[in-house]
Design a protein around this nucleic acid. Sequence first.
DNA 1: CCAAATAAGATTATTTATATCCTATTTAGT
DNA 2: ACTAAATAGGATATAAATAATCTTATTTGG
Lengths: 134, 134
Amino acid sequence: MMELTRKGEYAIRGIVYLATQPAEQVCLLSDIASAVDVPQTFLAKIFQQFSKIGLVRSYRGTGGGFVLGRSPDKITLLEVVEAVEGPIAPNRCVTGEGECSRDADCTVHPVWVSVQNQVRDILARVTLLDLSGR
Amino acid sequence: MMELTRKGEYAIRGIVYLATQPAEQVCLLSDIASAVDVPQTFLAKIFQQFSKIGLVRSYRGTGGGFVLGRSPDKITLLEVVEAVEGPIAPNRCVTGEGECSRDADCTVHPVWVSVQNQVRDILARVTLLDLSGR
DNA sequence: CCAAATAAGATTATTTATATCCTATTTAGT
DNA sequence: ACTAAATAGGATATAAATAATCTTATTTGG
């Protein structure tokens, strides 16, 4: 239960790789993909998502590629994971998506809230700097 | 991310209902299913799983049905969830299913272990007695 | 023996995950 | 301007997991 998908796994590998590179070093998608062993076309989609929310910056055309959008100590694992997997939510009732309406005072709800908070907290405390091992 | 499936949601509803019933009260599957608003055939499969590991006891034939396998304060939410959803594992690398072999000292691994422990801990502290609201 | 139950296996439908492909657009360098 | 090198984005394909149903078997009380 609660497993990260391939997409999430690949996303982390890819952006952690960027974090290990010298600051402002523009990296080719093909290089990243082969370095972290992820299908390039898949990684492209993931980095497009990152790019839209500023986690990475992209440069098109010859000499283009990707760079981290902020310094590695300012990007948390939580942001990375939620960017591609969606919000951390052990049950839909904690995302506000109805449910629980079944039962006015659902006794399980607070448990899910607690799980959600704990997990978010753990992931929010880890930065790409931590993960880069530098 | 990390969402409980319908099966898990149904499983909890079903067994919590049992916990709200008088001890040793044998309940009809059809009654449980309609009370907690779950397809009966689906709930049947779930309770079969519960039965195999002793979370509930089943009685076949006329007058048959289901009862909790132990007193509600001795059954944790963790057991219930893992019974139907499999082990809590935010990433396969924490279940021992290879991976991580990619990277001898994976920096993310300890984070997943931490998440796994925290979640398990939270769920293990909640019993069916707590959830029954009695 | 019959009717009421659960057990178990097979099957089906739907959704999500995991990609890949193709075309468009941008950009540096000549 | 032209070309080659890149990313962007939409469409499509395949596989796996989820969600559910159906059918047949087995058990049991009366």
